[in-house]
Nucleic acid binder design. Structure first.
Length: 213
DNA sequence: ATCGCCGTTGGACAGGATAG
DNA sequence: CTATCCTGTCCAACGGCGAT
C-alpha cells in the first residue's frame, strides 16, 4: 500500500500566520493535513477506556501503557475536557469513571450562570479551594465510580493494534473523501458543459440575427 | 527550603460559518 | 464583501507535590 501522505510540513487549517510553525506540543494529526485535526473516533474510545481503567488524570500510567502513542498528556487532558463537557477536570482526579456519562449530564445543564467554551462548561468566579475539590471528588466517586471488577478487567489495545486501527480508519476516510471529491468535480464539469452549450447557442442566434440584419 | 516536573486553566489566535 | 460570532487547538502562567 502506498502511504497516504508522503511528506507533511504544514497544517491545512492554519496555512498562514504565527501559528504556522511546528511546536513541540502540537498534535501530530494537526500537521498531517487531515481534514479534522485532533482525535479519531478510535483514539477517543481508547482514551475513554484508558481513563476508566487507570483513573482520570493518571496520564503517566496511560502514557506508560503506550495505548495512545504520540499523544501528550496535554492533548489527552484537552480531549478529556471535551468528553466530560467541562474544562475543569480536578473534581474527577483519580476516579474510575466513564467520562461520557459525565459529558451526557453536563450537556443538559443550562442556566444564566453556566458559561461554555467549545461546549465545555468553564469555571466562573474564583478557583475552588483544595477542600472543596476534595469534597467534589468524594461526591463524584459516590455518584459515578464504576466497580473495581469492571475497570480492572478493561483491556486496552496493544500499541501495534492501535497503529493498524488508526491507519485503517484514515485510509477509510481518504477513500470517502476521494469519492466525494470526484462527485463534486463531476458536478462542476456538468455545470461548465451546460454553460458552454448555452453560450454556443446564444452566439449562434446573435450571428444569425446580425447576418440577417 | 527549594528545585523541577506535572497537571490545570484562562486566554490567545487561527480558520470556518453565517448574517446582513 | 465584510463584520461578527463560533469552533478548535494550544500557549503559558500558575499551583501542587515529590525529591533532595
Amino acid at each position: 500500500m502506498t502511504p497516504i501522505i508522503e511528506e507533511t510540513k504544514k497544517p491545512q487549517s492554519m496555512p498562514t500566520g504565527p501559528r504556522n510553525v511546528l511546536r513541540s506540543n502540537d498534535s501530530a494529526s494537526l500537521w498531517n493535513c487531515t481534514l479534522s485535526p485532533g482525535w479519531s473516533r478510535e483514539e477517543c474510545d481508547i482514551l475513554r477506556k484508558a481513563l476508566m481503567k487507570y483513573g482520570i488524570g493518571n496520564w503517566a500510567q496511560i502514557i506508560a501503557s503506550n495505548c495512545l502513542p504520540g499523544k501528550t498528556n496535554a492533548q489527552m487532558n484537552l480531549q478529556l475536557q471535551r468528553m466530560l463537557g467541562q474544562q475543569s477536570t480536578a473534581e474527577f482526579a483519580g476516579l474510575h469513571v466513564d467520562p461520557l456519562v459525565i459529558g451526557e449530564k453536563n450537556s443538559k445543564i443550562q442556566g444564566p450562570n453556566i458559561k461554555r467554551k467549545n461546549n465545555c462548561i468553564v469555571n466562573t468566579g474564583s478557583r475552588p479551594s483544595r477542600e472543596e475539590i476534595k469534597r467534589r471528588i468524594q461526591k463524584n466517586k459516590e455518584l459515578y465510580e464504576i466497580p473495581e471488577e469492571e475497570w480492572s478487567n478493561i483491556v486496552l489495545p496493544k500499541p501495534e493494534d492501535v497503529g493498524i486501527t488508526t491507519l485503517n480508519a484514515k485510509y477509510e476516510e481518504l477513500r470517502r473523501l476521494q469519492d466525494e471529491l470526484a462527485n463534486v468535480q463531476a458536478q462542476i464539469t456538468e455545470i461548465r458543459n451546460k454553460k458552454r452549450e448555452k453560450v454556443f447557442v446564444l452566439k449562434k442566434y446573435i450571428y444569425i440575427y446580425v447576418y440577417n440584419f
